[in-house]
Amino acid sequence: MTTPKKKIVIAVTGLNAIDSPGPGVAVIRAIRECEDFEARIIGLSYESLEPGLYMHDLVDKTYQIPYPSAGTDTLLGRLTHIHDIEELDLIIPNFDAELFNFIKLRNKLKEMGIATFLPDLDQFEARDKVKLYEFGKKHDLMVPADKIIFQAKELVETAKELDFPLVVKGKFYDAIIANTLEQAEKAFYKLQAKWGLPIIVQEFINGTEINIAALGDGEGNTISVIPMRKLYITDKGKAWAGITLDDDRYIDLAKKFIKATKWRGGCELEIMQTADGKPYIMEVNPRFPAWIYLTAAAGQNQPASLVKMAMGEKVEPFTDYEVGKIFVRYAWDLITDISEFQQISGTGEL
């Protein structure tokens, strides 16, 4: 006689599997593949046309939640309603912009019986783009020099210090390479309009871009590290294809980062490896990347391991993975009916 598998109700955000995709669908796919538990997946969406809402083989039920700008009280009210119906065990948020609210609500959610597996607020803020250079200096990690600016006129001094080309970056997303002051100013205003202030101006590092998906247990131990090189990049800089790599330098770097921060949960390190072999950390994303399913395909199912740790299970660090495992993303026209669109738009549930 077999013991029935434990059923876990998991709410997941980031169902926007579009050309610049959120990680939610990939996270769910990896969780669904784990045979150690049974999952009921509750999608949490912001918009009615996030493709994940309509993927009924992956997502059992979806609820719309308020935008992060609505604040924690509004979010908590909505989550309480969803929890009354679904009895959530765990929430896995996947958007940079919503993480602050979920981290703030972590203790309240815990009191309600909902687990999360997120970094602490100070861990979360230390790797913020705005503080990354200081963070690198403190932990002996290579990070390009940068300047945080609030006015376009500061670009003149910044350019003298960092020299062209420069990378002009938005607070949350987007990076534009500028070769002249005019280009830098144009980038400044474009990013300010989109993401607000400040703007980060970073030293340009030439090299090969490597991405690392890592999972920390919150006590300084690294549970999993998978380095990946993008093989095909979209005009938005997103990976459309990528391959797992075998290079201990990346594994060591991720372990060093997780040990230094005692990182809890998933993260993505964006690395620029220079021709002389120096790995610069360009950014640390405080959540799983959209290509996270590759970790499961390569033998280290990071989302499933996160679920287990969030549920209080001790997970041993992975030691092996398949090198040369490739993902190739594709676009697929999912067909649904107006009644489903009407339901999610009208009731906020599907």
Partner: peptide, 18 residues
């Protein structure tokens, strides 16, 4: 050491992904 090859002339460098 870690270079993968096939008899047909395919070479894969797992360190760089090339």
């Amino acid at each position: 050491k870690n270079i993968a090859t096939s008899g047909e002339g395919f070479i894969f460098n797992p360190g760089t992904g090339d």
